[in-house]
């Protein structure tokens, strides 16, 4: 066996474009799923059953079924009725999937904020909603950060799955190149290396975030 990485170098711009798409999707999904997860968690905890039961059901459903199955359902299923671009399906699919996981964490950390915090805020004259907004949710956020950043690290790796519905991230971007150069090993090992690098950077970021959050909780 011999390896030839020159096709990878020839198709470097294509691959780089895939990296760009991967990173953009990553940022979009992270923002969407963290903010959404927080909102879903608050609604789930502080509303009547008619509202929070469907939400709890969807959190549970997203967590107990595979991402790819969810993507197929959205892509081929919803696509039957309304025409939406694959990229939107991908970002929403991945976004909802991780929104459920993040909401699950937020629900736990919101519950873990002691009742004394609630009372202290109320005794100052803050109402229920403002207490949630200024006191409970920010604290829950800091407490959630370690698990939250874990989820985001896992999420970025799952972006590769979006190639299955034709989104031009790294794997999909290199598929044409592979089909004409017949060098799958070289391409996939390069993609793995890029993912590993992204992962290392995210882990470093996670350590930094956790250290900063630690003295706020």
């Amino acid at each position: 066996m011999e390896f030839d990485f020159s096709p990878v170098i020839d198709y470097w711009p294509t691959l780089l474009q895939g990296v760009g798409v991967t990173l953009l999707i990553g940022v979009a999904v992270a923002v969407f799923s963290v903010i959404g997860g927080q909102i879903v968690a608050v609604i789930t905890l502080y509303t009547r059953k008619v509202v929070n039961w469907p939400l709890r059901f969807f959190i549970w459903l997203f967590m107990t079924t595979p991402l790819l199955l969810q993507l197929y359902f959205l892509y081929f299923g919803i696509g039957e009725w309304i025409l939406i671009p694959a990229i939107v399906v991908g970002v929403l699919g991945l976004g909802f999937h991780y929104m459920a996981y993040n909401a699950d964490i937020f629900i736990a950390t919101i519950k873990s904020v002691s009742s004394g915090q609630y009372e202290a805020s109320r005794s100052l004259g803050f109402g229920h909603l403002r207490t949630l907004l200024y006191i409970i949710v920010p604290q829950a956020f800091y407490r959630a950060l370690p698990q939250l950043s874990n989820n985001m690290i896992i999420m970025v790796k799952d972006i590769s799955v979006l190639s299955a519905i034709g989104i031009g991230e790294m794997v999909y971007a290199s598929q044409y190149a592979i089909s004409v150069t017949f060098r799958p090993f070289e391409f996939y090992i390069t993609i793995a290396a890029i993912y590993y690098l992204i992962n290392l950077m995210m882990e470093a970021g996670q350590t930094w975030i956790e250290r900063r959050a630690a003295y706020r909780s």
Binding site: S114, G116, Q117, E119, A120, S121, R122, S123, L124, G125, I135, P138, Q139, Y142, R216, S217
Partner: peptide
Amino acid sequence: IRQNMGMVFQHFNLFPH
């Protein structure tokens, strides 16, 4: 009403964030 009263708790309940 509560804005006119200051309450101090046994376990402080400072806002850690």
